[in-house]
């Protein structure tokens, strides 16, 4: 067993980035205010001092960019085509909307359009979903949009150990990867391998975080933390819930999800994105198609309200799924 250390999600993420930058000189970081300003959510705190010089006009390994998302996403993509391995931070995933033409029309398709000749190893990462009162333009959940696109891989880890190991896997992957971080997770703590540089978490594998026999709570990112809380509440009522942490949206580990549903015969899919058309709808549809005979109740979804995120704290909280919303769905399943 490796030595374990307690780290926040934010610290674990940085540990993954630093280890990959030290392992491979081709790995570099770019984004808005990631260097001198230390990162808006402080994921990159201290890195310009570690890998560059604060006083340099620019540092090629820790590159502060102008606020031009399409431009720097494209430059990163071109650099990846030529063999570098960029990690691109979006200050929030909401701003990646400005770069969608680059990511979807260029990055995701290069390998196919060249019939495998050109690879595009690149990681786009950043916080997605609601933080706290950032209102309509800064609270987008973008993971479902990206998981719609062939050519991308999409990860949404829920624990410090997973974000650490998945960050490393993402950098080593030869395909473009979106690493989606919910800002509500940055401060949570968990145990992470301290000095095991070979540690990674595989892409495309879901995890069972709590075993149970009565109902499957299927979610990813921060909603997995909600599902763990709900499972404890249900245990008091004698309902034994299984918590399936999807972790990887594309590719999707249906094997683990289906095995859980075949055991519990009930499923609630929980996601923060708008309920209508969000990625949870895709998971629910697949369970419905492939596990119909195993189900004792319809597959239920709990998603964010279908409204632009409002500013007032009470309205914002109303929009984001919480334990009560998941409990209500669970009751409908019995």
């Amino acid at each position: 067993m490796p030595n374990m250390i307690e780290l926040s999600y934010r610290e674990a993420l940085q540990k993954g980035i630093v280890e990959e930058m030290e392992r491979d000189q081709n790995v570099f970081l770019m984004g808005e205010d990631i260097g001198r300003y230390q990162g808006t959510f402080k994921v990159t705190r201290g890195l310009v001092e570690k890998f560059g010089q604060r006083d340099n006009r620019y540092n090629l390994r820790i590159l502060d960019t102008p606020i031009t998302e399409a431009g720097f996403a494209g430059i990163a993509t071109g650099a990846a085509m030529a063999g570098l391995r960029p990690i691109v931070e979006f200050m929030t995933m909401s701003f990646s909307i400005l770069a969608l033409d680059q990511i979807i029309n260029h990055t995701a398709k290069i390998h196919y359009m060249t019939n495998g000749v050109v690879k595009c190893p690149i990681v786009f990462r950043g916080p997605g979903g609601a933080a706290k009162q950032l209102s309509a333009q800064h609270s987008h959940s973008m993971e479902g949009w990206y998981a719609h696109v062939p050519g991308l891989k999409v990860l949404a880890p829920s624990t410090p150990a997973d974000v650490y190991g998945m960050m490393k896997s993402a950098v080593r992957d030869d395909n473009p990867v979106i690493l989606y971080e919910n800002p509500g997770l940055y401060a949570i703590k968990g145990m992470v391998p301290e000095d095991d540089a070979a540690f990674t978490v595989p892409i495309g594998k879901a995890a069972i975080l709590r075993e149970g026999k009565d109902i499957s709570l299927v979610g990813y990112s921060r909603m997995t933390q909600i599902n763990l809380e709900v499972a404890e509440l249900l245990a008091k009522d004698g309902i034994d819930a299984e918590v399936v942490d999807v972790r990887s949206l594309l590719p999707l580990d249906t094997e683990t999800i289906y095995a859980s549903v075949k055991k519990t015969h009930r499923a609630v899919v929980v996601y923060e994105d708008w309920r209508s058309g969000g990625f949870g709808a895709e998971i629910a549809a697949r369970i419905g198609e492939d596990c119909f005979d195993d189900l004792d109740a319809p597959v239920l979804r709990v998603g964010g309200l279908n409204v632009p995120m409002p500013y007032a704290r009470n309205l914002e909280l109303q929009c984001i799924p919480d334990a009560d919303d998941v409990l209500a769905a669970v009751r409908k399943a019995f």
Binding site: L60, G74, G78, A79, M81, A82, L84, D101, M113
Partner: peptide, 22 residues
């Protein structure tokens, strides 16, 4: 390449130059 979105490949070209400079 060989790109179909008007202007869309221009940052990619700058990215190739970034790799050369790097």
């Amino acid at each position: 390449g060989g790109w179909g979105i008007v202007g869309g490949h221009v940052p990619l070209g700058a990215g190739l130059a970034y790799a050369a400079r790097y």
